[in-house]
Design a protein around this nucleic acid. Structure first.
Lengths: 137, 137
DNA sequence: TTCACTGCAAATCGTTTGCACTGGC
DNA sequence: GCCAGTGCAAACGATTTGCAGTGAA
């Protein structure tokens, strides 16, 4: 991630986006944020939303989640946690796991490098979709 | 992943793509495959490459890797293994880790669901980029 | 003959960017 | 006045798709 070099002023639009992400734990896409924030800023443009999401990510105020699928998601929670993505419904869940350090030694059998403990994406089947599958028989 | 319903015939192009992925452990993108395979099939089109990669993925013959970045990567190795992506150079490394079952119980503190042990994406710093960083001081 | 597969080109879609304008410091 | 930020629309890049032609069963 390139660091931010130029001067930064506050803007109402960026504050609103930051506030939106702080109060919504849903890992929304740029488009979702855009549509919701339009209620407050009817004239805001999608370009502005993208520009501010990129800027906030570079500033380290939010996290961009690339989990496959057609678009990026964003997370206002920058605390140390990982994510689980359901292969069936696509929903993203927070995953607070402690003591992941051992993964490094587990991985070291086939790999030399340093795993970032807060940057792991797990895929699978969420509880809700497990239940749906069970009903289908 | 939607299952394949219609009849499937073999094609030289698809065979070549499958063979390419079987013999290259580099997790290439569609465009890389396209450019390399053009040497053998000068008239092959990018659309054909994409169509066959999608089909092979649906057939379960290859895996599509969505690890962020601007494009998808593909893996001809469908054996049980995970991937590590270097945040600096973007390279994708195979990660063969055993006994990941315990991750479910670790995760269960904050989450109800079933993790697929062969579908985990780890991010971090690879050995080569660690060395580069060390030299930079 | 049929129909799966192809090459080609146009369309799609998420995201980025150029530009002229505005507004806060 | 300067320049960061904005809205708008065009551009971009990866991927998908419609279509007419081809070739293997």
């Amino acid at each position: 991630m390139p660091a931010v070099t130029r001067n930064i002023n506050r803007s109402k639009q960026r504050d609103a986006i930051m506030n939106y992400l702080s109060t919504h734990k849903t890992h929304p896409t740029a488009d979702t944020i855009y549509n919701d924030i339009k209620k407050e800023f009817p004239n805001i443009s999608l370009g502005t939303v993208y520009r501010n999401l990129t800027l906030l990510t570079e500033m380290g105020s939010i996290r961009k989640l690339s989990c496959g699928g057609s678009s990026e998601h964003f997370d206002g929670d920058i605390s140390d946690h990982n994510h689980f993505i359901c292969n069936t419904c696509g929903n993203i869940f927070d995953l607070k796991m402690e003591n992941l350090d051992f993964l490094d030694s587990l991985a070291s059998n086939s790999f030399d490098g340093q795993i970032e403990g807060h940057n792991i994406y797990f895929y699978g089947l969420c509880k809700s979709c497990m239940n749906d599958t069970a009903k289908d028989n």
